[in-house]
Nucleic acid binder design. Structure first.
Length: 566
RNA sequence: GCGGGUGUAGCUCAGUGGUAGAGCGUCACGUUGCCAACGUGAAAGUCGAGGGUUCAAGUCCCUUCACCCGCUCCA
């Protein structure tokens, strides 16, 4: 087993470039932050990974295993658009949830939502009358010159008042003491505090600090963390989603989003799939493709890219069965990643803690890999989430479509023996994998240094995902060997050329040709030598051990077939 | 977003303000008898980009971009 913590990421990245696995996007123009391209070997590696997912999730789900209810697992594919009606993202929560302007406190490095900034506005009126002060204040509160004496981050004014009262340390920072909440002047009015502010008795109303004030006067607004002005930035949009415009006019009305996940395309087409393809719950719908997220900090090679590819399955089932299905998929997905070469202790299945869960989820697990740049920690390859009926319910609400499923296998048994049927909103288990992260994990896991070998760098890919499946070499480029090698190569190419590259090379020393194949991760090399010409055998040289066997030349295909299926 | 580091050939990296370099790799030819062998030769560079100082900038200054590391943020 290879230990990821000892693998230098720089060496892996260097090999990725040198051998054509990964290139920086737009490299000759200086690159572009958060985007990476795949070279020939990387593109084939990722395709093999995607194909493996498709085969084991869609074509022959779970290798033909039965699910918790004893029935064969059934899945169908869709391929949905990157650009959807913008309402899809309102329904899914992606628009509302991630478009909030954020403010940074440059001094404490804290970041908070601009609409959570509550201001304490000191009241002043000749007679100390709060009602008069409030009336006066309400006329001015939206004016840019009207700066609060102190600020608090909270979901609303009442919460802010409660936080301030409860937190003595915060009071000290902000210059507040002896604070009490006075009865509100009128129902729904801003909370009124009686307090001492910087030694002077005063009263204060808590109002949200308006976006306009924050925009224009952020330098004067005191920080909610230090009480000092000058460290807050203006509110800034942190857009998770990329957007563009449909049509040539490009007005705000034409704004559309590039999807941040492929899953929503599945939910949106759920009804069509049910209506047109005779699927019956429980069943899954798979979708692969590019997604886009405007990550704040793209980092760690291809791990957090702004454009990335997902392979997502939404598995729909009856609510009563959903937890069993959740466990089933969680365990299968872990096993699947192990089956393609992430078999060691660098791979873990991690069940989320209760406080990590989304409000609608009753269970989520991550398949995580210990990348060199996360070690000793782990990075997520795939999340398996129990999403309940959240998504279908959201889309039913927003679109008005009826997305409930009528299950004719459930309900009371009728006198004629048939079931009465049951109408319900299916629950959904979502195994959502990142293909680029998967490919990166395969690369990191495969990368091996063996200083005892003349060519120390070896990519030990599982044969199923290896971009180069086999190579055929004449030991020397004469004496009829090249001709035999060409024939064997042509034969293997015809049989295996759909699954990956099949190479041949007659140039330079045999050791150099083996070494090149080791570095590219080709699992087997077949070499034609002098004996081949007399006894029709070739040597099979194994990448991982460097050892070689002799087998009959007409058994090479069968040998390779077995090896690739193993 | 903040702080630190790096950027010179495909890769790894030297390079004192004064001619753009090495090793490896790649390619060609020769040789070859199982592990980056050897010989000869060749191609390959916007020195990350832009500006400035200077007689002269890979080298000094400013700006910017990308990558790496640490925070921060984010599902």
């Amino acid at each position: 087993m290879s230990d990821a913590t000892t693998k230098p990421m720089d060496d892996i990245m260097s090999l990725c470039k040198r051998r054509g696995f990964v290139y920086q996007a737009s490299e000759i123009y200086g690159g572009i932050n958060g985007f990476w391209d795949y070279g020939p070997l990387g593109a084939q590696l990722k395709k093999n990974l995607r194909d493996a997912w498709w085969e084991d999730m869609i074509m022959n789900p779970c290798w033909g295993r039965t699910g918790p209810g004893g029935e064969r697992v059934r899945c169908v594919p869709v391929e949905t658009c990157i650009i959807q009606n913008p309402k899809v993202w309102e329904a899914s929560g992606h628009v509302g949830g991630f478009n909030d302007p954020m403010v940074d406190d440059k001094e404490t490095k804290q970041r908070f939502r601009a609409d959570h900034l509550q201001g304490g506005y000191l009241g002043s009126s000749p007679a100390g009358d709060p009602a008069l002060a409030l009336a006066q204040m309400q006329g001015q509160i939206t004016k840019v010159e009207h700066i609060p004496a102190f600020t608090i981050t909270a979901g609303g004014p009442d919460e802010a008042a409660a936080i301030l009262l409860a937190d003595r340390k915060l009071q000290k920072l902000l210059g507040v003491s002896d604070a009490n909440i006075l009865p509100s002047i009128s129902p729904g009015a801003a909370p009124l505090l009686q307090l001492t502010y910087r030694g002077q008795p005063a009263f204060a109303f808590i109002f949200p600090v308006s976006g306009a004030v924050q925009e224009h006067a952020h330098a004067q607004i005191p920080s909610p963390f230090t009480g000092k002005a000058g460290s807050l930035t203006a509110p800034r949009q942190f857009n998770l989603m990329f957007f563009t415009y449909t049509g040539a006019t490009a007005t705000e009305n034409d704004k559309v989003y590039l999807r941040p996940e492929t899953a929503q395309g599945i939910f949106v087409q759920f009804k069509n799939v049910v209506d047109t393809t005779r699927v019956r719950v429980p069943f899954g719908i798979g979708n692969t493709g590019r997604s886009f997220r405007n990550e704040v900090t793209p980092r760690n090679f291809t791990f957090r890219s702004r454009e990335f590819e997902q392979a997502e399955l939404e598995f729909f089932c009856h609510p009563d069965d959903s937890f069993e299905w959740y466990k089933f998929w969680r365990d299968f997905r872990m096993e699947w990643w192990q089956s393609i070469g992430l078999a060691g202790e660098n791979l873990i299945l991690r069940e989320h803690e209760k406080d990590e869960l989304s409000h609608y989820s009753t269970g989520t697990s991550d398949v995580e890999y210990r990348f060199p740049f996360t070690a000793p920690g782990f990075g997520e390859l795939e999340g398996i989430a129990h999403r309940g009926n959240y998504d279908l319910t959201q889309h039913a609400k927003h679109s008005g479509a009826k997305l409930e499923y009528f299950d004719t296998d459930r309900g009371e048994t009728l006198p004629n023996g048939a079931k009465k049927g049951e109408r319900y909103m299916p629950h959904c288990i979502e195994p959502a994998a990142g293909l680029d992260r998967g490919a990166l994990a395969l690369i990191c896991e495969a990368y091996t240094r063996d200083e005892s070998r003349p060519s120390p760098e070896i990519m030990k890919f599982h044969p199923r995902v290896a971009p180069i499946k086999a190579a055929v070499f004449p030991l020397v480029n004469k004496d009829g060997m090249p001709e035999v090698a060409d024939r064997l190569h042509a034969d293997l190419f015809k049989r295996f050329g759909r699954t990956g590259f099949v190479e041949t090379d007659a140039k330079q020393s045999i050791g150099k040709r083996y070494a090149r194949m080791d570095e590219a991760g080709c699992p087997f090399c077949f070499t034609i030598d002098g004996d081949t010409l007399t006894d029709q055998t070739v040597t099979v040289r194994s990448r991982d051990t460097g050892l070689q066997d002799r087998i009959a030349i007409d058994k090479v295909s069968a040998f390779l077939t077995d090896a690739l299926l193993a």
